[in-house]
Amino acid sequence: MLLALEIPDYIGFDNPDQNTGKMNTKGWETEIGWNDKIGELGYSVSANISDFKSVMGDLGGTEFLGDQIKKKGSEFNEWYGYVSDGLFQTDADLAASPKFNTAVKVGDVKYLDISGPNGVPDGKISPEYDRKLLGGSLPRYMYGANIKLDYRNFDFSMILQGVGKVTTRLEGLMIQPLMENWGSVPKILDGTSWSKYNTEAQNLAAKYPRLTQNNRGSNYLMSDYWLFDGAYLRLKNITFGYNLPQVWAQKVSLQKVRVYASASDILTFNKYPKGWDPEVSSSGYPITASYVFGLSVTF
């Protein structure tokens, strides 16, 4: 692989691509299908599922990619960040725990001090010693299914597609309030964030930290607080069609006439915040549903 492995900045040159590294990928896939006819109803069903995992071998170095990393023993582009422990709920807890910086207040994300320069926790949260591997970022158990039915002159098909498990991240654009200091607050934070106006019970149940722009540098760091399961099932396509009876078609000197209605990408089941698509980046244009009505004529 060509990897831009990290070399010290003080050499004075950018990271060169190095032809280096071993990666081990193991996986499997299965497909099963059946087609048959019950009287005049013909049907065909097929389903497939596959999975793989890529683990890096000896790379000769480390490649940092911001929130992800490739290094010996990690998965390919594995998440790399802090370990969180809920939110700070009391002043006492805040005073007694290590904090990322002095601007951290009650209601902010709490991180765990894993290690320090001497290999033991040092009472500080620092990027050099308190980050660890948080799980692979690539999809697992990808599957699809295909159902076809035909009865007399009608036909129907449905395609499903999905991913069984993928660890993905709530990106800034999805959940960060007050971006650029004049942005508004995303709707999902309403009623679910820690707030000084809440009761204690409401705050204990809060899913998101307090709304802050000043301390965004601490709350929105890469950590397991923001990871969630991005698995999804998408109804990729559903199509109804009708073939005009042969007799009628021939009357107008045509071999075959078919009318059909088809819808693509109309339904997706997933845990993403409303408005975001599991297959598109957080700043990309989402996949839009499309409805097509058509007429197919064969001369």
């Binding site: 003080y10 004075g12 910086n101 002095t102 050099e128 000043n214 301390n215 540098g217």
Partner: peptide
């Protein structure tokens, strides 16, 4: 606002550019 740390963009850029020079 007291949030400077080793990942900050400015300190990384200054370090890299200085050593390049």
């Amino acid at each position: 606002n007291g949030t400077l740390n080793g990942e900050d963009g400015t300190i990384n850029t200054w370090w890299t550019n200085s050593y390049k020079c």
